[in-house]
Design a binder for these strands. Sequence first.
DNA 1: AAAATATGTCAATATGACTGACTTAAAAAT
DNA 2: ATTTTTAAGTCAGTCATATTGACATATTTT
Lengths: 179, 179
Amino acid sequence: MTDLKMRSVSEDFKEEELRQIIEMLFFAYRDFTKEPDKMLEEIGLGRAHHRTVYFIGRNPGITVTGLLDILKIRKQSLSRVLNQLISEAYVFQKIGDDDRRKKLLFLTDKGLVLEQRLTANQRKRIANACLGKNEHAINGFKDILTAIINEIDQWRFSSSTTNSIFNERSTTHSNRGVE
Amino acid sequence: MTDLKMRSVSEDFKEEELRQIIEMLFFAYRDFTKEPDKMLEEIGLGRAHHRTVYFIGRNPGITVTGLLDILKIRKQSLSRVLNQLISEAYVFQKIGDDDRRKKLLFLTDKGLVLEQRLTANQRKRIANACLGKNEHAINGFKDILTAIINEIDQWRFSSSTTNSIFNERSTTHSNRGVE
DNA sequence: AAAATATGTCAATATGACTGACTTAAAAAT
DNA sequence: ATTTTTAAGTCAGTCATATTGACATATTTT
């Protein structure tokens, strides 16, 4: 038998609490993605398309490399997804002005509508979950969730009360070099 | 153009805050699963095996149906994963005493060791994320995370300060019938 | 005896990811 | 001016996870 079972009460409590959180993350993420997945399926798209549409909508003019950097997947994987989104007119490309190798990505109106439909569902779920919770609870939620993320990507939520989004995306934070 | 862009400042703020949370969930879950995924890959297993081993370890004697109920996947999907775990001696089955149709699932010592290794990684990530946060923040985190979960599964975390685990699993909450 | 339950299995399919190798075009560096 | 690096794209093959539908078997309940 492994000798993993002998530990102090306080250790047991911590382990129990940590396991509960592990499970909450599993159930929460499973349910968080289920309804959008269903919507997507009806129009022949998948979760990968959702993420792509989401982050293009969030960062208009993002490059392919920028997207790969966020999604942490391979170019070949993104390629199929992106080609489908372009051929079905959810996304369009525009050659970069300064650097003509770059293809800047944008949502079409059709893409915007899809993105809104998917995100509205998830926003509602989050908003409902926050209903009746005070600011401390919500900030605690955001702080700990952010702290779970690998440091390399935490800058995206540089909390400081300010909403990080108005860093729209200069040229990517030139993060690379780490990891 | 869609007329989605005209909204009040407060609505914009809410939308912005909600989108940040949506993104946090994506990044947190991606990073939360990355290292265990890597460990599993080295021994020829995948994330599905992780979840199966985890919940068997958490609910010794759980039935196949019980697992399906937690994982919300099809019997055929679980079958392949479970068969591999059994043939590679991470899991063993025991015919039910009261109902001999049921096959109760348990981890072997080998399975226990694997489960501990995987969970230790995730526990450490969560524990680090909670470091320096006060009780209010941690409770806020747990409360909101729980509230994101579909109601049908929230009983698993019936907070009431008590750790829900010592409801081991009578016969499943006999949830079905809903959804 | 019939119906429902718990489990298992065959076969086919879709999706999202992976690896490796290679091309093209443009920009940057020497 | 040539070489190297970067950005993007593509071909081909593989793998893991999940799906659906159709059945089969044993056991328990009605």
